[in-house]
Each structure stands twice: as structure tokens, then as C-alpha cells.
Design a protein around this nucleic acid. Sequence first.
DNA 1: GTCTATAACCTGATAGAC
DNA 2: GTCTATCAGGTTATAGAC
Lengths: 223, 223
Amino acid sequence: METRPNKQSDVSTTTESLLNAAERLFAEHGYDGVGMRALADEAGVNLGATTYHYGSKQKLYIETVMRRFRPIGEERIKLLRLAEKEAKGKPVPVEKILDCMLRPPFMTVLAHPYFPALLARNLFMPPPFMQELLAKELPPFNEPFVAALARTLPNLSPEVLQMRDVFAGGVLLMVSRQLSKMPMRNSPDFCEMVLKEMVTFIAAGLRTESTISGSDLPPMAFS
Amino acid sequence: METRPNKQSDVSTTTESLLNAAERLFAEHGYDGVGMRALADEAGVNLGATTYHYGSKQKLYIETVMRRFRPIGEERIKLLRLAEKEAKGKPVPVEKILDCMLRPPFMTVLAHPYFPALLARNLFMPPPFMQELLAKELPPFNEPFVAALARTLPNLSPEVLQMRDVFAGGVLLMVSRQLSKMPMRNSPDFCEMVLKEMVTFIAAGLRTESTISGSDLPPMAFS
DNA sequence: GTCTATAACCTGATAGAC
DNA sequence: GTCTATCAGGTTATAGAC
């Protein structure tokens, strides 16, 4: 038992319950769809406390999103580096790369029921003030995967690979959205099955010969 | 030249410029992100006229979305029926089914630069009042494609097929979003190439053997 | 059919008591 | 660190003149 309340954890209860309320409400109604009053009520804190802790609605929103995005990005890179180490200099198999790429966001989606909507909102139509931030923060956690795929699938041009990486992102996003509506979401076996099926589907698409010869496509058409 | 103004077209200029303004602003900022004042200003009509023509913000939003969704759904079915007729009772090739499925929304995306965001918003995170409407309106235009794929790919269980149909939707949505940011969007050749590459990618994924045996998956897991 | 004026309410942010 | 009260400006919808 905690006999002496610790300052750190006291501070975090208010800020965290605010973040949790924000995750749910921003996910369901979007940035403009929810007011500070609703956020404060949902979190069970006073309206004035919100500005004290986060300064503005925008800063609260940014922290709500980045609290999830940060660890996903880091985990992705960690898993990829590990897989590359295991491959001992040889190209990492396609399925392995895709698993490293998709598993962290997929698991986060499963662990936090309101995250899929938040993810989709911010990848597809972020509020204007988020666009620059995300354009800076996200690519470093995705480019290594395109590079790894390029080593494993040397017959595909970088342009086609970039495009197919966009395809793969679409699959993940759509599955996340569907999964969040399903009761089966809580079965780890079922989820592992869905992840594996996603990897199989995307791997088959990646391996197939492209109908595009590299020179037909302007460089970096998809970024 | 029009010598005598025709009632029909007079009415439609106000309502249409309102719809066009709504498409742009709702796509960019979402339902809650834009007020009736901004809509009226953008359309160059008076605030009072908006309620006269559409009754409420919700009804204007619904009409903005359905103006695009309706013809896409109808065109999809028309193309599929045509392809089935051409196949003379034999199963329609996967690539042909996918082309019928993806071409109408893809072309609409190209023709209307603000439509991709509107599409993504309403498929991923529709405003609450749209959810029931879309759940009723959209499936009739998608289920025939799952059925057609089932005939062509009889080795895949209905559950797996349903799931992969979700994957395919994700690819289309993601490509639409990316395309709307690209200048190349205006080149028909480039767009035809992207569509073909999408079809190739998805077809390869669809044809690959599933890692899921039908009985592992609860029926209609993805709907 | 189009407009103005206004009603009734909600918004984010802040100042200052406790 | 938490609260209340309040500000200035936004929201949708409506009533009634023209």
C-alpha cells in the first residue's frame, strides 16, 4: 500500500485522466467535435484545471496523439533492428519486415479501443495544426521499412515500393477501424490470426511483378 | 443562349454552389469544423438562404455526401453486371471484378479534388448522424462484389473473402488520399497506371492461399 | 426566394479567489 | 494546484421584412 502519497503520481492522475478522456472524445468526435467542457466533465476534473495542465486545447490534443504515436514508432524500429541482426546481413524476409512494421500499431489498436479512430483521424485528416508536426515526426519511423523491403525485393523500383507501402498502410488502417467494432478484438488468438492474414495478403501483393516500369513513374510520386 | 431564365436552373445555381462550397469545406475541416456562415460565404449566398434550401446543417451535409456516393454505387453495379454478361455465365476474372469495383470511386476522386477527404471522413469517422444512414446505403453496392469474387475464387472461405474485401477498401482509401495531394493527379495516363497497379497488388493478395481455415473464424467477423 | 436581425446557446481562454 | 466567474466571439436556427 502507498502510505505516503508521492508527488509524481498525484500529478499524473489529473493529467492522465484528462488524456484518457481526450483520447476517447477526440477519437469519437474529432478535434472540433468536442469542447473543453466535455473533456473536463469526462475526466472528472475542473474546467480551469485543463488550461493549467495543458495550456490550450491544441497542446492537449497533440499530447493525446503523441502519447500513442511515440512508443509505436520506437517499437517498430526496435523490432526491425532486431530482425536485421537475426538475419546476419542477409535480407530480412518480407513477412518478417511486415510483421515488425504492423505489429506495434496493431497491438496498440487492440490495447486501446479508442485509438483506431484517433489513428485514422490523424493519418487521413489531421486538424490543420497537426499536419506539419506529423509530416516531421512520422517518416523517420517508416522509411527504414521501405529501405528494408528494397533490399529484400531488389526487382521492385523504389517508386513502386513506395507506392505499395502506401497500399500496406491502407490495409492496416482499414483493419484497425473494423477491428475496433468487433467483440473478437479481445481474443489474442483471433488477433494474431488477423495480423498473420494481413501479412500474408500484403506480402503476396508486394512480391507480385509490377505493371509499372520504374521510368514511367515520377520519382517519389508517393511520399 | 438562354433568353428566358428557366426556373429549374435558377434554383440549382444557389443549391449547387452551396453543395460545392460544402464539399470543399466539409472535406477540409469536417462537419464540426465549419459553420453555416463560412459555408454561405464560400458559396456566395446569404446565410438565411442556406436554411431555406436545406433546412438544416445536417441535411446539407447528407446531400453533400450522397451526391457523390449515389452515382458511384450505381456505376459499380452497372460495370459488374456488364462484366458478368460478357463472361457469359463463367466466373469473372479477379482483375476485372476489381476494376469494376475500384474504377468508379477512383474516377470520382480524380474528378473532384475535395472528394477523397470527404470519402475518407465518411468511411472512417462519419459524424454520428451519418452512421446509420451509411450502414444502410453502402452494403448493397459492395456485397455483389464479394459474391462475384467468391465465384471466381471458390477456394477462399466467405469469411476470408470478406476480410480481404476490407483490405482492398483500405488500399483504395489510402491511394485516394495520397493522390489528392499529387499534381500528377491530372494526368489520365498516370492515373490509369495507378489504378492498374492497385488492381495487380490486390489481385495477388486475393489469390494467395489463406493462413486461416474457414472454421477458425467466426462467421461475418468482418462486415 | 432572398435577405436582416436576433434569439438562445456554446466556445476557448483568462483573471483572481482560495 | 484547483476552483468560480466571466469575457469576447463563435454557433445553429428562426421570425419576419421585402
